[in-house]
Amino acid sequence: MRFNPKARLDRSRVKDTGRGGGGGGGGLGGGGVRLPIPVGKGGIGGLVVIVLLVVLAQCTGLDLLGGGGSGGSGGANRLSNLTDRYAECETGADANDSQDCARLAIENSITGYWQGAYGELSGYDGGRARGFQPIDSLYTFTGSVDTGCGSASSAVGPFYCPADESIYLDTTFFDDVLERQLGGPDGGFVEFYVLAHEYGHHISNLIGSMGLVTSQETGPQSQGVRLERQADCFAGMWAAHAEQTEDVDGNVLIEDITDEDIELAIDAAEAVGDDRIQEQTQGQATPETWTHGSADQRRYWFDQGYRGRTCDTFAARSVQVP
């Protein structure tokens, strides 16, 4: 993958909170509802365990996150702890030389794509859609972070918080967890797929799909799995058009995405399938407990988006692989 050296980067939404981030790490996953895959040991599931907890809290009225959804002091902590990690990320040339700047460029690309493509999703929502707006921020951190959804540790993995409409990413996750613990692939585009997946949850939030998760049902056809499959499908949509996204001056941001890049994305999606994680952590897959879907489901729905097919997983009769 190569960025256009002349492209200008927008740093306004990408921020770093440094080590600790002002939070402890025990505030997520507490309360009265437990997911079938524990947080911290394979519990990254589809990389967004927190999303299901937040949705369930919104639907049931339970305070699952030990801090509510209003943000509280978390926002102040995040803003006061910001580092200058991205200060030198100005152009596509910087993105070619630095993974940090590449991450920023990818956020720009995903935002630019959805600014143009969001209108194509009319009809997904049953009348609940809001107009497009970018994520509030992409926060990188190390160790732990305060969010609008409570405190999170790096054990949770990358996630989207609908309460503050931000994505959170401990950048050590890819080497320490995805590659070493789960046997996932290593490569720059793996992280970019993850960001596109989490941004997909933001799109699901805007169009109203996230609000359709109204129960704690599990299994391959459950509402939570449908939400996850929609995020993978949206990630595929962006990947198919990433070479056409532009900076504020109309310069193309990404010059080249290879077939190998796309295969890395799919391999990463498969590595965090519920069946793969369960086979590693408990020796066998138990589909009735799935909250994020199988490796095959993840590959199939990413490919659906990549090929320009519908991502309306909640309207689909089945999200199983045909």
Rank of each mutant, 00 (worst) to 15 (best):
Y193N: 02
S73T: 14
F141S: 01
E107K: 02
P5W: 15
T310H: 05
Q244F: 00
L35A: 09
A268Y: 04
G92R: 02
K15G: 02
M210T: 15
E246A: 09
G273P: 00
Y113M: 15
E90W: 15
A295D: 11
G157E: 07
R13Q: 12
L121Q: 05
A7S: 10
D84I: 04
D256W: 11
A152T: 09
G42E: 10
T83A: 07
V225E: 04
V156G: 05
A315S: 12
R34V: 12
L264N: 06
V272K: 00
D296Q: 10
L65A: 06
R103L: 15
F3S: 04
D63I: 04
H201T: 07
A316L: 12
V321Y: 10
C101D: 03
Y168V: 00
D247I: 14
G219H: 14
G143I: 00
A271D: 02
I37Q: 05
A155D: 03
A315K: 01
S222Y: 01
G30N: 10
D176A: 15
L264D: 06
Q304W: 10
G43L: 03
G119P: 05
L35Y: 05
G27F: 00
E270I: 15
R34T: 11
L227K: 07
H197G: 03
D274E: 10
V156Q: 11
G293C: 03
F189R: 00
G32D: 09
F132T: 01
T140P: 00
R276G: 04
T289C: 07
L227V: 05
L62A: 15
A235C: 09
G30T: 14
R307C: 03
S109R: 02
G66F: 07
G25I: 06
T147W: 03
R298V: 08
E165M: 14
G157A: 07
Y199Q: 00
R2F: 12
T171V: 14
E191G: 10
W114S: 02
L206M: 08
G31F: 02
D136C: 03
D94V: 12
G21F: 02
L47K: 07
T142L: 14
L169A: 07
T83C: 08
G25W: 04
A269E: 05
V213D: 01
A235H: 07
A57Q: 10
L104N: 07
V39I: 15
R34Y: 05
L52R: 13
L79S: 11
H292P: 10
L182F: 14
A269Y: 14
G126M: 15
T140A: 03
F234T: 05
I110Y: 01
L169G: 01
E88D: 15
V194N: 06
I50S: 15
D97K: 14
D232L: 03
G127A: 11
V213K: 01
G188D: 05
G293L: 06
E165T: 10
S215V: 02
V39P: 09
G31L: 05
A163R: 01
N77T: 11
P322S: 08
L65Q: 10
Y124D: 03
Q223P: 07
S98G: 06
Q221P: 00
S166V: 02
N205A: 15
L104G: 01
